[in-house]
Write a protein that binds this DNA or RNA. Structure first.
Length: 111
DNA sequence: AAACTGACTAATA
DNA sequence: CTATTAGCCAGTT
């Protein structure tokens, strides 16, 4: 019997990160550290970034709503991915300061 | 297997 | 306010 199928873990830490990111409501933003803490122990701010980077084109995850704790968008890599992120957030109603900073007091997700 | 890198944060100076 | 250092852990080379 039996058979214990799956010889391996499934619990991808990424799934936990995505689950939290999906919870971010429209028009709100959260920091990597915040998401990491909500995802539970074992998840660090960097892991959130890796998970999102590995995400790729999953539209099921509002990765654009995740920003760094400075209230700004972190520089990605090549291309203007970060610029696109700002555009998307503006579309959602998020306002940016002249410096490109988002006011957590107004748009920060309080979960 | 060791070394390097990376969408981060917090603490210190 | 900026700059620097350390901690963090997974994925890649």
């Amino acid at each position: 019997m039996s058979a214990k199928i799956q010889p391996k873990q499934q619990p991808n830490y990424r799934e936990r990160v995505y689950a939290v990111v999906r919870k971010i409501p429209y028009g709100k933003v959260a920091t990597y550290g915040q998401v990491a803490r909500m995802a539970g122990a074992g998840i660090t701010a960097r892991m959130v970034g890796y998970a999102l980077a590995a995400l790729s084109d999953e539209k099921d995850v509002p990765w654009q709503r995740v920003i760094n704790h400075q209230g700004k968008i972190s520089p990605h890599g090549y291309g203007f991915g970060s610029a696109m992120q700002e555009t998307i957030l503006r579309e959602e109603g998020v306002q940016f300061s002249p410096e490109g900073v988002i006011d957590f007091n107004q748009f920060g997700w309080q979960g």
